[in-house]
Amino acid sequence: MNYVSSIGSYSIMVREVFKKPTKWPIMKSLILKEIDELIYGSMGIIIFISFFIGGVVAIQTALNISNPLIPRNLIGFATRQSVILEFAPTFTSIIMAGKVGSYITSSIGTMRVTEQIDALEVMGVNSLNYLVFPKIIAMFLYPFAVAIAMYVGIFGGWIAGVFGGFSSSADFVEGLQLDFIPFHVTYSFIKSVVFAFVIATVPSYHGYYMKGGALEVGKASTTAFVWTSVVIIILNYILTQLLLG
């Protein structure tokens, strides 16, 4: 029953976010600030993780090819498929749920605890629009981060494959180009847009409606990470079934 009530509150919150917009000059600066915090500030960790994940996929694929009849270009092929279809959009989103999600929950939760949200409401400001809308808009740039994650992941695979002595560069690149379906990139971007919305709104919900003090802010951040991850995993399954099934 609690879950149903939470889904209802979440839906009402999302509706309220789009009501009574904040003045554009103020909103513009808020959006730019959030792009800096949420997207630009996460690029380091996205690039770092993508590079090594791509490398690990390449190495594991290579180590599992024991049959000499299997072509070496499979390493490039498997790296491309894994990175584009899952690692770049989904794995990165789980990381973002931890990094960005906990930041969103703790910043909004602290504002709740210190009555800053009440102060906004008393002034007649739509606090949900002021706090959550810029995060949603900023997160719509997330597919660009995912595109970079794809590039860096595949590059990491190439480095690991070629310099680890598992594959020649020509074989790897041949594998990358083998049976390439452009829709897979579209599918990945569609997923990343949906996940971006989840990463912006689910932690905001947990921060905005939290009750208590500093300890509860920490608990809310943890709960937000768990639920954001759960929602991403479920939506990943549904979207994969809908778009590729």
């Binding site: 904040t22 003045k23 103020i26 602290t110 210190t114 009555e115 800053q116 009440d118 102060a119 008393v122 002034m123 007649g124 400001v125």
Partner: peptide, 28 residues
């Protein structure tokens, strides 16, 4: 907008300077 409120813990916006806090309602 005709109401002003002084909260128990002041409820100033941490990310803004004193000037930013006081200017906030005027900007909005």
């Amino acid at each position: 907008q005709e109401m002003g409120m002084v909260f128990q813990g002041s409820a100033l916006f941490d990310s803004m300077t004193v000037e930013g806090n006081v200017m906030f309602p005027l900007e909005m």
